[in-house]
Design a protein around this nucleic acid. Structure first.
Lengths: 333, 333
DNA sequence: GTGAAAGCGCTAACAG
DNA sequence: CTGTTAGCGCTTTCAC
C-alpha cells in the first residue's frame, strides 16, 4: 500500500541497507549510490515508517508529557515549551492528563512504556513512592518539573517557591497588613508545602503569629479557592489580606470576594502566586509572582533530550527564580 | 530485556498465537489454556508492546490532534475533551501546534502519517487546499473542528458563528449603540469570516451602516487585538462599542482600553466572543458568547472514533450552539 | 481449539 | 563501500 524502503531500494537498484544508510546520513556510501537513493526517495515520495523504526530500535521518537491538567493555564505554556523543543528535535509529544490521580498517572506511565517512548517529562502527583519508578526501572529517562520526587534521583526543574512566597508575603506585611490569610495546595505537593512555608517564614520574620483559621490547604482547584476564601471572609474576624498560592485558587478566591462586593485592596488585599493574561486587566491589577513557565518546560525538555542522547552526567536539580510583579491589589506601592 | 509474548507463551506452555487470542478476547480458546495464559501474564507482568502491534496491524492506537496553539485557552478544553475520549478508548493523543502555519501543519501531518495514527482531529489553518488531503488520501479518518474545510468532505464540528455574533451585536444595538467596531480574525478563516458576517448582518438588520474604519481583521492574537483597538480609539470619532471576535483579541483590546483609563461601558461598551474564567471577575463583568468548547472536542473525538471503528455512513456536519452570557460591559440590562 | 510460520518495515551486524 | 541476513514483538492466515 504505502511505499516502503524496499520499493526505494528496488528503484535505486541498491539494497535496503544502503537506503537506510543514506537516509540516516551515515558515511561510507559512494556519491553515486547516495544520489540514486535520494532521487528514488523523491520520485516515490518515500517517508520512512516511524513505527517500523521504533520497533527495530526499541524506542519510539516520542516523548511522553504527563501533567495534572491541561486546562490549568499554568501547564499550558509548559506544554508548549516541551512541544517546541520536541518538534525541533523530531520528537512528537504524547500528552497525558493525570488529574492529580495517582492511578491515572500509573496507567499513563504503562502506556508510555508500551509505546516505548524515548523519555518522559512529568509533574509528579506525589513526592514519594510514585509510579515513575517504573520508568526508571525500564531505563526510560525521566525529568520532573514543577514538583520534586524525593525518593527518585532524577533531573528536576522547579521554581524557587519558598523564596518567592516569602517575598510576596513580605510585600503584604510591608503594606501594614498583619492578619494575612493563605490558601494553598495540599501539603503533599511540593508547591503546596513550599509556598506555605514561605508564607509562614515571612510572618515569623516579621514577628506576626500565624493563625490556624487563616490557613487553608486543599486541592489546587478553583472550587477549593472559592470555598476557602468564603470561609475566611465569613469569619468573625476576617483577614485583611490574602495570599493565594496558585492561579486556580486565585480565581476561586476572587470569586468569593467579588460575590461579597468587597473592595480590593481596602476591604481585602490580594497577593497571588502565578501570573495570568488578565491580571493587569482587573482593577486594581493583581500583584503576582510570575513563574517562568515556558522556560520551565524548555529546561525540562532540554535535560530530557540530553539524557535521551546518552548523557550520563550527574543528576541535575535546576531551580528557576520567579519575579514579583507589583500592581495595585495590595494597596499603593 | 522486557517480557514478550513468547515469554508468556513458554511459561503457559502454549503458542504465542494463543496468548494473542486470549489477550484480544477472541473466542475459540479453551478455558484451560485461557486460564494458563492469564496467570502467566500476571506472573510475568507482561504488557504487550503497542509498537509491535502497531507495525503488525499497520495502525497505531494513537490519534493526532492538530490545533493552532495550546496556549490559546479556547483550545485547552477542546484538547482536554479529545484526550478524555481517547483515554476511555485506549488511544493516546499526539499533540501538535500548527501556529496557523500551513507548512508546520503539513509537516505534522506527515509525522502523524509516519506514526500511522488511527485518525486525526484538526482545526485546519486554511479552508481550502490544505494538507489534510494527504490524510484522506492515505485513508486516515479526519475530523475538522472549529473551522471548516471546503474542498474536503470530512466530518466537521463547529459552532453557530454567524447567529451568535448576530445576537451579540444585536445586544449592543439594543443598548442604543450605533457606532460599533469589530475586531475579528482573518477573512480566510471560518471563524473570522462568519463572525464578521454576523456582525454585519446585525447592523444591516438595524439599518445601521457599517463603517470601514471600525472593522479590523487580522491574526487572532492578543497583539493584533491591542493594535486594532488602539487604532480605533485614536480615531477622531472612536466607536461607542466594540465587538471582539475571540478571546485573545478581547484581551488585547481590553489592554488598549485599560491603558487609556477608559470606563466600560460608559466610554466604550464591550461585547466579546469566548468565555474565559475571569470574565465575571472584572468590573463590570464581560458580556460574552460562551462556546461549548469541551463539547466541541467531545463530539469531534466521538465522530473520529466512530470512523476509526469503521463507520462508513455519510459525512456529518455538526453545528453546536453557543449561549449568550450577559453581564455589565454593554451597560445595564 | 491450537500451533507453525510468515511478515509488517526497518536497522544493524556481519561478510565480502 | 555494499549487500545479505536476521530479527524487533506482534497478529493472522493456514493447517491440523
Amino acid at each position: 500500500m504505502s511505499v516502503t524502503i524496499s520499493d526505494v531500494a528496488r528503484r535505486a537498484r541498491v539494497s535496503s541497507a544502503t537506503v537506510s544508510r543514506v537516509l540516516a546520513g551515515k558515511p561510507h556510501v559512494s556519491d553515486d549510490l547516495r544520489q540514486r537513493v535520494l532521487t528514488a526517495v523523491k520520485e516515490l515520495g518515500y517517508k520512512p515508517s516511524r513505527v517500523a523504526r521504533s520497533l527495530r530500535v526499541q524506542r519510539s521518537n516520542i516523548i511522553g508529557l504527563i501533567i495534572s491538567d491541561i486546562q490549568n493555564p499554568f501547564f499550558t505554556s509548559l506544554v508548549r515549551a516541551v512541544e517546541d523543543m520536541a518538534y525541533d528535535h523530531d520528537y512528537a509529544v504524547l500528552l497525558c492528563n493525570s488529574d492529580e490521580n495517582i492511578e491515572k498517572e500509573a496507567l499513563y506511565i504503562e502506556l508510555l512504556l508500551a509505546e516505548q517512548v524515548s523519555g518522559v517529562v512529568i509533574t509528579p502527583t506525589r513526592e514519594t513512592n510514585n509510579p515513575s519508578r517504573r520508568l526508571i526501572a525500564a531505563g526510560t529517562p525521566v525529568v520532573a518539573v514543577d514538583r520534586r520526587m524525593h525518593d527518585l534521583d532524577v533531573d528536576t526543574v522547579v521554581v524557587e517557591n519558598i523564596g518567592s512566597s516569602y517575598e510576596l508575603t513580605s510585600h503584604l506585611l510591608g503594606h501594614g497588613y498583619r492578619r494575612i490569610g493563605a490558601i494553598t495546595g495540599p501539603a503533599t505537593s511540593t508547591t503546596g508545602r513550599e509556598r506555605l512555608q514561605g508564607y509562614t517564614q515571612a510572618l515569623e520574620a516579621a514577628g506576626v503569629e500565624s493563625v490556624q483559621d487563616l490557613i487553608e490547604m486543599g486541592l489546587p482547584k478553583e472550587d477549593f479557592g472559592y470555598r476557602a476564601m468564603a470561609t475566611m471572609l465569613d469569619l468573625s474576624r476576617p483577614p485583611e489580606a490574602i495570599f493565594t498560592a496558585n492561579n486556580l485558587l486565585t480565581v476561586g478566591a476572587l470569586r468569593a470576594v467579588y460575590e461579597r462586593s468587597l473592595q480590593i485592596p481596602d476591604d481585602i488585599a490580594v497577593a497571588a502566586f502565578d501570573e495570568m493574561n488578565w491580571t493587569s486587566l482587573v482593577t486594581p491589577g493583581l500583584t503576582t509572582v510570575v513563574q517562568p513557565t515556558y522556560e520551565l518546560g524548555c529546561k525540562a525538555a532540554q535535560l530530557l533530550l540530553r539524557r535521551i542522547e546518552g548523557d550520563n552526567g550527574p543528576v541535575q536539580k535546576i531551580v528557576l527564580t520567579p519575579t514579583l510583579c507589583i500592581r495595585g491589589s495590595c494597596g499603593q506601592h
